[in-house]
Amino acid sequence: MVNTVMFWIIAALTVIPALSLLFARKAVHVAMSVVLVMVGLAAAYVTLSAPFLGMVQIVVYTGAVMMLFLFVLMLVGVDQREDLKETIKGQRWIGLLAAAGLGAFLVSIIGRVTLPTADTMPSGDPEAVAIALFDRYVLVIEVLGFVLITAAVGALVLTHTPRLRPRKTQLEVQRDRVRVGADPVNKPMPGVYARHNALDVPALDPEGKPIEHSVSRVLEIRHQTQEGAEFRAALEDPSRKEGDR
């Protein structure tokens, strides 16, 4: 038998984050909640006398699979929001109702089932698992090798680009840069001002004017910068003190 308190903790730890799959807007939030679900499931496996599987679940799912999801989310842009507007009106509610119906149906089926629980606990330690894996299921293991090969080859085919052009030397890179009229040297660092050596403050040129492109573009897009104009005004009008702002 299983500890009741444990069951309810696991149920809360899995179902509540799982709901984010339906309601969260940002994919990253969904991915992080699914990580939580996976940890909850690992706990469930340990409770159900499958300790080794529980560990593997943490390693494979939270450690590898969900991190891979996060990598890809970073790659395609974290800020991609999904617009939740509906192509068919009410589709969302119909879908939710259908899913709730499916869930209720499955739950009611299990509620009607009488299935005794064996008194013997299966031994889920690595040794027992290994013996079972390489006994009756050895062919499945061998075939799984081909699944893994396919995955590796498939991913390479879809994403790997061989070197098509000769590698550019540093000299060529620099020449190209000058040719298109870009900065021949690094951009100035932001915030080298006596009172504001912060990333969000523009640097000042020798004349004391702010150099606006010294602040990172990302901060600008997020509107997290200090306005260069403010400092210019303070310079032009010495009576206004910085502290007055």
Binding site: M1, V2, N3, T4, F7, I10, A11, T14, V15, A18, L19, L21, L22, V37, A44, L48, G95, L96, A98, A99, A100, L102, G103, L106, V107, I110, G111, V113, L115, T117
Partner: peptide
């Protein structure tokens, strides 16, 4: 507590996944 409750939990998760 009967382990069948975990199957109920699994069904709920399955339905949520399908809905997603």
């Amino acid at each position: 507590m009967d382990p069948i409750n975990f199957v109920i939990l699994a069904s709920i998760l399955f339905a949520i996944g399908a809905a997603a």
